[in-house]
């Protein structure tokens, strides 16, 4: 694996107020590559989904840490990793089905993974039950 040109790491408490901060921080870092406004908006949206997933589903609003790592390469490839050490996902394939949600309030759309898939070029989700989730997202900037 070739070495990245630049990288950043961010560890945040699993508080919903940090969702905005997480997407803004990643966007500021990626902005160094002069992406289009649309590319930046896509990345912000995907990061927001992944971080919200960690807070809502991974830690179920309990205390924990959301780990965010971003790398970019000379060919304008951006790789974003978002991890939690929460409860994990029993069936990743099922969780990634559009409109699937474990929420019973009717207020979650179940579109989180669909948004990540649509707005990024590649999405990889791995999880072990009771150990957490690792989401790896790739975006090739123009």
């Amino acid at each position: 694996m070739k070495c990245c040109d630049n990288n950043m790491k961010l560890y945040l408490p699993s508080l919903s107020i940090n969702e905005s901060m997480a997407r803004q921080a990643v966007a500021s870092f990626v902005a160094q590559l002069n992406p289009t406004l649309e590319e930046l908006a896509d990345i912000k949206c995907a990061v927001s989904e992944a971080v919200t997933n960690a807070i809502v589903h991974g830690y179920k609003y309990k205390s924990g840490t959301v780990y965010i790592g971003v790398k970019y390469y000379g060919d304008r490839t951006v790789i974003i990793e978002i991890r939690d050490k929460g409860c994990g996902i029993e069936n990743v394939k099922e969780a990634m089905t559009p409109l699937f949600t474990t929420d019973t309030s009717g207020e979650r759309s179940g579109m989180g993974f669909a948004v990540m898939q649509t707005f990024m070029d590649k999405l990889d989700v791995r999880s072990k039950l009771n150990e957490g989730v690792r989401i790896l997202m790739t975006k090739h900037l123009k």
Binding site: A41, C45, S48, T52, G106, R108, S109, M111, V115
Partner: peptide, 16 residues
Amino acid sequence: DFMDSSGLGLVLGRYT
């Protein structure tokens, strides 16, 4: 300025 799937949930919930 920004909306993610939580915003979609909000819109769908208000529709209901």
